[in-house]
Write a protein that binds this DNA or RNA. Structure first.
Lengths: 249, 249
DNA sequence: AGAAACGTTGACGCTGCGACAAGGTCAAGC
DNA sequence: GCTTGACCTTGTCGCAGCGTCAACGTTTCT
């Protein structure tokens, strides 16, 4: 038999057969005078075993192991392990499909999929074109994806703020500070009102520590022009102070 | 932010971030004087979107597509497609686990896993150390894995032959011909008796056509020494003749 | 005799990074 | 000032299991 024949007989490609030779799964057969590989039935039987094993889902390394010690013992071991692996994969797929089902259900925000907690929050926030509000949403989305699952409670706690009737006005006042200087007189009162608007529940989920020390706090500040940054910094500092008082109370 | 910071913030590795630059998913940010990449919050937001999308299971190409037209339309499309793909994978895994369950149930023959049909046949065949019988089993295993599912009916049809009380004696007579010449007088009668022992059901599942013309027939013959080969060839020819008569009857 | 259909070796491609190598940069401690 | 350690830089190989050229020789059909 030549390579194409044995491949067709067993039901694999010639390329696969050569690959098996290359990785040492199937011994190279003798050659004919013209250099073609000359296969015997024994090769075909071996190749067929390889095919059955790979079809079941064994890796080539595992196939090699199983063929090596031809006691049937190892095979059962490998198969059990494989089944456990498949079971794990099946669970993973099911979990991912669960996530997908939730995402397909939701109205799909334009800036990508969000966690259900954040989606619920944004769903209750008023529609607006305020740049500051947009920036805020980006920051929340960033926190959402930041990995640590700490966002969910925060988003729930922010719900009253989103529904606060005066929140839009506050955003607009922040917008007005875009080109202002750091000594603008509107900074202090706006910061104070923002702090006052933050629900008490939020304080409970803010971890203690200097906010600007964590990468996240510094990074958020860098995203604002000077006057707005001054406002946000004041708010962060004030909230941190209240968190500290919470800790000592 | 430097690369390690943005990576930690979003929850990926620095290597992954560089990879996203390399494949054009994330634009290269400006550099600091020392050559370090200087990331902004906007980069972090984008990176976070990428992370969410890849976590869901999108390939980097799909992520690129979704980010490209930032209408939410494409996203839903891709997600639906992804879900369909996952559903397909889930079915495949379940099917493979079914197969595995059957295999783990069975006693696991030493020469690898067999189809249930062949396993049943061998289970009913008598135990023997005859080389000819062993060869026969190898050939059946080869046919089993040959891809075309035509083996199952044949194995079922061979069941009476396996249980035939005289089958062992026939195998032993074939063994005795191992070193004999092609003109040995025992060839003709053995071939005749073998043909007579083949159940009629087998004829029904043999495809019409010259057996030595198909790769399989030629290959089987090559596996025998001369005298045995003569026997097997006679049997094959005789069976083919009976198949032809079946076709015209 | 030419074309089609085989065979040969060799090398790159695919996915999503991980893991080196061989450096340069920066902050802290001695 | 010097070392140490933790960062950063670019570039390359590796992974699984072959598919897919490339560039060429062989066999076979017409």
């Amino acid at each position: 038999m030549r390579i194409g024949e044995i491949a067709a007989l067993v039901g694999v490609t010639s390329r696969a057969v050569r690959h098996y030779h290359h990785v040492g799964l199937l011994p190279e057969p003798a050659r004919q005078a013209n250099g073609y590989r000359a296969y015997t039935v024994r090769d075909a039987v071996l190749l067929a075993r390889i095919r059955r094993l790979t079809e079941i889902g064994l890796s080539l390394d595992e196939v090699r192991d199983v063929l090596a010690d031809d006691a049937g013992r190892e095979l059962g071991e490998v198969l059990a392990e494989l089944d456990a692996d498949l079971a794990r994969q099946e669970r993973e797929i099911q979990e991912r499909r669960q996530v997908l089902a939730v995402l397909l259900e939701a109205p799909l925000a334009s800036d990508g999929p969000l966690s259900p907690a954040l989606a619920a929050l944004l769903d209750h926030a008023p529609a607006t074109t305020s740049p500051a509000a947009a920036k805020d949403r980006e920051h929340l989305a960033l926190l959402d994806a930041a990995g640590d699952g700490a966002g969910a409670e925060l988003f729930a706690a922010l719900r009253p703020l989103a529904e606060h009737p005066g929140v839009l006005a506050l955003y607009e006042r922040l917008d007005e500070l875009e080109g202002a200087g750091v000594d603008d007189p509107r900074i202090a009162p706006l910061a104070a009102e923002l702090v006052a608007a933050v629900p008490d529940e939020v304080l409970a989920v803010i971890p203690e520590g200097e906010p600007s020390a964590t990468g996240f706090g510094r990074v958020l500040l860098d995203d604002y022009p000077p006057a707005q940054r001054a406002v946000v910094r004041r708010v962060m500092e004030e909230l941190a102070e209240r968190v500290r008082r919470r800790g000592t109370a």
